[in-house]
Write a protein that binds this DNA or RNA. Structure first.
Lengths: 223, 223
DNA sequence: TACATTAATGACTCGTTAGTCAGTAATGTA
DNA sequence: TACATTACTGACTAACGAGTCATTAATGTA
């Protein structure tokens, strides 16, 4: 990266147009960062690698020095952006000592802070939209995000049921019901001008939690 | 395929390969039907018009006799498949006399029967995935589906609040909370191998209704 | 049967973009 | 200063697919 310090994802300044810099270490993350921006904005297929490269301040040829293919670049975006959050969640689960509802809330708030509320929130939409046509990415996401994410929630729910805090429930369905609103919130944030757009995510999340707390509460009102 | 009666979206039989038939009336719906199948399966951009035409048993040139562009074809798919359901919902609303919860349930079940449970369920995913790159389609869907659909739910909710059946609520947020799980259910059905795939939609919907009924119930438990 | 009308065709153009590779410029080394 | 190494470039290709249009075949009509 070197010689002259440069902000990670800055464009080349105009006068530097033809200057070649050598920054082997910094390139991959500069490229994945640029890729995330454009993938989220335009979709995976509709994003041109020329544009990704340009945004990272390099040429397309350089991109291919670091990533074998467009799909490999996408995988790297997921690996770098999403996967670490799961590790954090797994640690939270292991260390938690409060109520299960608090744990659940903590996991979901954590998701919002690290993914749902950031530009990474566009990734689930990308996966939903395009993974069918890119099986390798789909497989990677399934194995490293979906399976691990669901396992996390399943553990939290089962703990609550075991302690009598939650009424007995079908874990898989409950997981769906819990994450669907979060995913939709993330999706809406990137679906131009639709619905929730300008509304407050906080209010939405509170409403969801509120509903959830009632729905999960043991014994009273609902069988 | 003429003269002899033929199912709407049948492929050409091998020996009919070079025979040209004239069926002006039937073409548009044959083409939109084929288009829906392929759009849902592969996405809008990734679908080739050659394939749509072939599935409808015609050539690409013929497709362009009936639709001005790929986007126009997409608009026609929505117009023919989704819009009528909204008209049905509006009628239901006008004629309903029971409780507001029953009306709400009726609207959502109707949505499931006519859209969510059919191949049309793929359309919301298409819109979410690709509308950003196709502003004309986005505008059409927004005006004719989203706005009308939300108005329908808003009316049902407001009726319930007015009668004291539901607790006071922010209508827009409540709408989001109500439709998010339905949309996710539809989306999951077309997101290969992910999550809810093989689970029972009925169970999922029941869980959602159950949660909803508790969340909306007036006065007790929650403020 | 001859002629007019129109539904349908498919080869074509033309723009687009993932991926390649021979060459260039920056840096390291002696 | 000369030479070796390697990060980087950008023009190129090959393939693809939306949209066009001159031509052909089916049907209607006199």
């Amino acid at each position: 990266m070197p010689s002259i310090a440069v902000v990670p994802d800055a464009k080349l300044s105009p006068e530097a147009k033809t200057v070649r810099r050598r920054r082997k270490d910094a390139r991959p993350s500069e490229l994945t960062s640029a890729a995330l921006d454009l993938f989220v904005e335009r979709g995976f297929s509709a994003t041109r690698l020329d544009d990704v490269a340009a945004r990272a301040g390099v040429s397309k040829g350089t991109l291919y020095l670091y990533f074998d293919s467009k799909e490999a670049l996408f995988k790297a975006v997921i690996e770098e952006g999403i996967v670490p959050t799961l590790a954090a969640g797994e640690q939270r689960l292991a260390e938690h000592s409060g109520t299960s509802m608090a744990l659940l809330r903590e996991l979901l708030v954590g998701w919002w802070q690290q993914i749902g509320g950031t530009r990474l929130a566009g990734v689930p939409k990308l996966i939903i939209s395009e993974s069918r046509n890119f099986p390798e990415v789909a497989q990677y996401y399934h194995d490293n995000v979906i399976v691990r994410g669901r396992a996390l929630l399943r553990a939290a729910l089962q703990r609550g049921v075991a302690s009598g805090e939650f009424r007995p429930l079908d874990a898989e369905t409950a997981i769906d019901v819990i994450i669907a609103p979060l995913l939709m919130l993330a999706i809406w944030r990137f679906s131009l001008c639709f619905c929730a757009q300008e509304r407050d995510p906080q209010t939405y999340l509170e409403t969801h939690f509120d509903l959830l707390a009632n729905g999960l509460r043991a014994l009273e009102s609902t069988a």
